[in-house]
Amino acid sequence: MLKQYSFEETAVQTFDEKTSLAMKTENLQVFYGANHAMHDADLAFPKNQITALIGASGSGKSTYLRSLNRMNDGIATVTGKIWYHNVDINEPTVNIYEIRRHIGMVFQRPNPFAKSIRENIVYALRANGLKNKAELEERVEKSLRGAALWDEVKDSLDKSALSLSGGQQQRLCIARSIAMEPDVLLLDEPCSALDPISTVKVEETLLELQKKYSIIIVTHNMQQAARVSSQCAFFHLGHVMEYTPTGTMFSNPQIPVTQDYIAGSFG
């Protein structure tokens, strides 16, 4: 029997004017047909920091994350505001391709294309009009270095991406995203299909990447959230219950539902 928690009692931090934000949502609602999967999400994400979204399976973390770069278009109805550079990118008139160029996404399951390692990275650049060979090569190297994969694959760029290990594939997906030089990187449980050693590598990569990018990562691994994030949002049944600095979340959770979740005595 699942314990009932009040959705009225929440603890969501806001930021003062001085904090520069990568993006922010206001009153975000997501509906899958009649299923109201996300209620009133008001979250702000500081620049050049890692924010973790945690919560039980089915609590709406992916639903929320996918709304941020309009990947829910055609799948769900999203209302509310998504502020990015003072533009509400949830407006239907906004160019979604441009948005996804600036707000990249890495998925739970490593999903490189059945192309060579190089082609995987070049694909998106070409799709966005970059043609210069030398520049493409340069971007390939830069992004692979950024994803800490360069040393492992620099001699086999023409090998199929599918011949890489799971961890390498995921870092290739990260490389593919950062090759577009986005502002924000969204990651949906990027390590859940990986072994512990690959997980550590990806986490190290993320900690390095936050210097250049603002990162929002969904994870159901609380240790991972504690290791990499600066703030942490806890989702419960489609509601954002608590949003606090990671230290606070894990040492001094503010409301009963978070306390129970962190203590592992949920429901």
């Binding site: 990249g104 996404m105 998925f107 999903n111 294309f113 998106a124």
Partner: peptide, 23 residues
Amino acid sequence: VPRHFKEASLALGATRWQTVSRV
């Protein structure tokens, strides 16, 4: 064709046509 190819391509900012023709 695995769905995740399409998703990956769209998430990179490729258009629907680019996704269909190249992936």
